[in-house]
Design a protein around this nucleic acid. Structure first.
Length: 419
RNA sequence: GUGGUCGUAGCUCAGCUCGGUUAGAGCACCUGGUUGUGGUCCAGGAUGUCGGGGGUUCAAAUCCCCUCGGUCACCCCA
């Protein structure tokens, strides 16, 4: 690669056509899917006072190590959002909409980390948050919406991983038991996991290191520590998923990175692509978050889905393809360009997608450009057409050949050919 | 933050081991064959700070050091 003076910052990239068009199409499918269920869009700012994100928990790397934080000109300590749940809940606390409040969002997030497949410093997420009800069927709705979204994209190789972290107290008791277990086997644990153990014992369960697997397998299971209430909630979530025929896999080792999760947690894994970053989405309950942001104690549940990773999964499953052409019509004018100027504008007025060639190039060059544009039909104006106020309409893809019609009949001819 | 690996034309890559004339191929692009017709074919053409900097040498794409970037994994997470 020649070395351009400037390039997109590390860990970022330019999304260009056709990817950008596909990106937008994905967003449209998502918006439609969740709006069908009554979720309304929120567009929060991309940065917040850093304290908003610190409420997510100091033990998470997202907060402690990966934040793009800065001091603004007014001396305020701000940060680019590493995720949007905190912003949405902050907005909830600030505006106090009626509950249940069901919101959806879409947009970029920022985390300072080393890029790899499916992981970027600026990455897009779409998601929903539902605040108010404690009803386990709300958990089910949230999961079902993500599931429906994936299905509408044509993804079939998605596994739903499900777990419950219990209520706050259950979690405490579980962590104690976990600590005892790992402490007893400390010498067998990897060095990295011993460090993790000191900071956040739950996360040791997430280790991918070979050395740790046996000890993790023999560790106590969260599900054994659920209080009767939490167990009942979780049971109802499962029954609800069963009722909707949504398949899931119970995974007692599923502990999600953000500290705020309690009770139901879930993750969507793509089995179609071979990469470490195969979690295409995840979420759960965060019953304490509103309170920690200064609002009334309000239960909440939601998910975030990674747009980049979801599209990687689509690539792997060869589904949800991007567009193949940007225009349907292409105007060719070998008489100087004046005719193309007028005809192209007229076509746009009619709502057609039409492009044209420039610089008064040869017929051959213009035909080539027409072919390359992906257009179905070329509208040709040469000396003859210009003299007789006609246009030659040529089918570039089918067997219709070409026909020369008066300028006034172009629209009618196009209607017939495009049907 | 740690480790592996890779940077040569717009793209995919050869050349580097063992330094030596003007740095190559395919695709794409442009022009012509076909002064009114693309997608096939033929002929010709344009395009490179060999990622950047420094060093060794008579001589560096090639050897050494540093650096930047891509990529993959750990970590973390979507």
């Amino acid at each position: 690669m020649a070395s351009p003076t400037f390039r997109a910052p590390k860990g970022t990239r330019d999304i260009m056509w056709p990817d950008a068009a596909r990106w937008r199409a994905l967003g449209q499918v998502f918006a439609q899917t969740v709006e069908e269920a009554g979720y309304t869009q929120v567009i929060p700012p991309m940065f917040e006072n850093i304290e908003v994100f610190k409420r997510l928990g100091d033990a998470t790397d997202v907060v402690s190590k990966e934040m793009y934080d800065f001091e603004d000109k007014g001396g305020r300590h701000m940060a680019l959002r590493p995720e949007q749940t905190a912003s949405i809940v902050r907005a909830f606390v600030e505006h106090r909409p009626l509950i249940p409040w069901k919101a959806w969002y879409s947009g970029p997030n920022f985390r300072y980390e080393r890029a790899q497949k499916g992981r970027y410093r600026q990455f897009d997420q779409v998601g929903i948050e539902a605040l108010g009800p404690e009803d386990p069927h709300l958990d089910v709705e949230v999961i079902a919406l993500a599931w429906r979204f994936y299905q509408r994209l044509g993804l079939s190789q998605i596994t739903l991983m499900l777990n419950s972290l219990g209520s706050g107290d259950d979690r405490e008791r579980f962590i104690e038991a976990l600590q005892a277990h790992f402490a007893a086997h400390q010498n067998e644990l990897s060095e990295a996991s011993r460090t993790t153990l000191a900071v956040n014992p739950l996360r040791v369960l997430d280790s991918k290191r070979e050395q740790d697997q046996a000890i993790i397998d023999s560790a106590p299971k969260m599900l054994d520590f659920l209080s009767p209430e939490a167990a009942e909630h979780f049971e109802k979530v499962q029954q609800g998923l069963d009722a909707l025929d949504i398949p899931y896999t119970l995974n007692p080792r599923l502990v999600r990175g953000l500290d705020y999760y309690v009770r139901t947690t879930f993750e969507f894994i793509s089995d179609a692509f071979d990469a470490a970053q195969n979690a295409v989405g995840g979420g759960g309950r965060y019953d304490g978050l509103a309170e920690s942001l200064g609002g009334p104690a309000t239960p909440g549940v939601g998910f975030a889905l990674g747009v980049d990773r979801t599209l990687l999964a689509c690539d792997a499953e060869e589904t949800f393809p991007g567009p193949t052409n940007v225009v349907d019509l292409f105007v060719i004018d070998t008489t100087g360009g004046q005719a193309a100027l007028a005809l192209t504008a007229a076509l746009h007025e009619e709502g057609h997608r039409a492009d044209r060639s420039w610089d008064n190039r040869s017929m051959k060059a213009q035909m080539k450009a027409a072919d390359r544009s992906g257009a179905q039909i070329a509208l040709i104006i040469g000396e003859e057409e210009a003299a007789s106020d006609t246009v030659t309409v040529r089918d570039l893809r089918g067997q219709s050949g070409q026909t020369t019609v008066p300028r006034t009949q172009v629209n009618e001819t196009l209607r017939k050919m495009m049907r």
